[in-house]
Computed example of a mutant assay.
Amino acid sequence: MTEPIPDDAVLPVTARVPFGTKEQLKTLKPLFKAEQRRARVLSLSEPWDVRKLSGREAAERRTAWYAHRAELRADGQLLDSLDSVVMLEVRAELRERGWNHAWPPLPAEALIPGRWPGSRDGGYPEKVPVRLPAGLVLRVRSACWHTSAEAIGQLRDWRDRWPDALPTRAFRDDHEDEALTEYEELAAQVTTTGEIWRSALDRLVDATPALLGRTAAAA
């Protein structure tokens, strides 16, 4: 039996994004460096300093510090990595969609390898890997599946009816055009996890000037 993933674990995800996104994200490096320095200073202050403790006491204090650091990141008070800021933007995206709540477990069908019917995740040339809290990743996956399942089922039925229909075919009859219109309408009702990751990164790019202003104000 597969062991459940603890919510405080992290999972890797990869966002497929438009060209130029990675270059835009590089501008956040000064923020991350400044926040990393601030975290180091904080870790050496009371009550987190371990320099005068025994080995056992130091291990307990470091464990408490790591938990506190995670809380700072979750609250948006420590923005020391791409992972930490993307996490905040993913949560913001879920809140905006009204999806930031508990969802039913994912069915086995949702875990089949490969892209979902209606997926628009192809065609993005760049990849941005991040590590996010497992609980957040699972919430995104569940939200996407349970809001898309009906359309996914209808798209599978559509493919059974129109196994050869292709939007790029040069010569199509009117029935195929109508079928492809139906496909587009159904596909628009499917939200993949890739869309959520991209939306979070779009938010982050838009927020970059304000975040860099935060760095300048703290200098």
Rank of each mutant, 00 (worst) to 15 (best):
E3C: 09
P4C: 04
P4G: 05
I5V: 14
P6E: 00
D7L: 14
P12V: 07
V17C: 07
K29T: 01
L31F: 00
Q36N: 10
R38A: 06
R38T: 00
S45W: 08
E46S: 11
P47S: 13
W48C: 12
W48D: 04
D49N: 15
L53G: 03
L53D: 07
G55E: 15
G55T: 11
E60Q: 11
E60T: 09
A67G: 04
A67S: 09
A74Q: 12
S81Q: 00
D83P: 01
S84C: 05
S84D: 13
S84T: 07
V85F: 00
L88Q: 13
V90D: 06
G98K: 08
G98Y: 06
H101Y: 13
W103N: 02
P104T: 05
L111Y: 15
I112T: 13
G114R: 08
P117Y: 09
P117K: 07
V128K: 03
P129E: 06
V130L: 08
L132F: 04
A134E: 10
L136W: 08
H146Q: 14
H146R: 10
T147P: 01
T147W: 07
E150W: 13
I152H: 01
I152Q: 02
Q154N: 11
R159N: 02
R161S: 09
R161I: 06
R161K: 10
P163R: 03
D164P: 07
A165E: 00
A165H: 05
A165L: 03
A170P: 03
D174C: 04
D174N: 09
D174S: 15
A179V: 04
L180P: 05
T181A: 11
Q189I: 06
V190D: 14
T192L: 10
T192H: 12
T193E: 14
T193K: 12
G194K: 03
L201M: 09
L204P: 01
L211G: 02
T215L: 06
A216W: 08
A218Q: 15
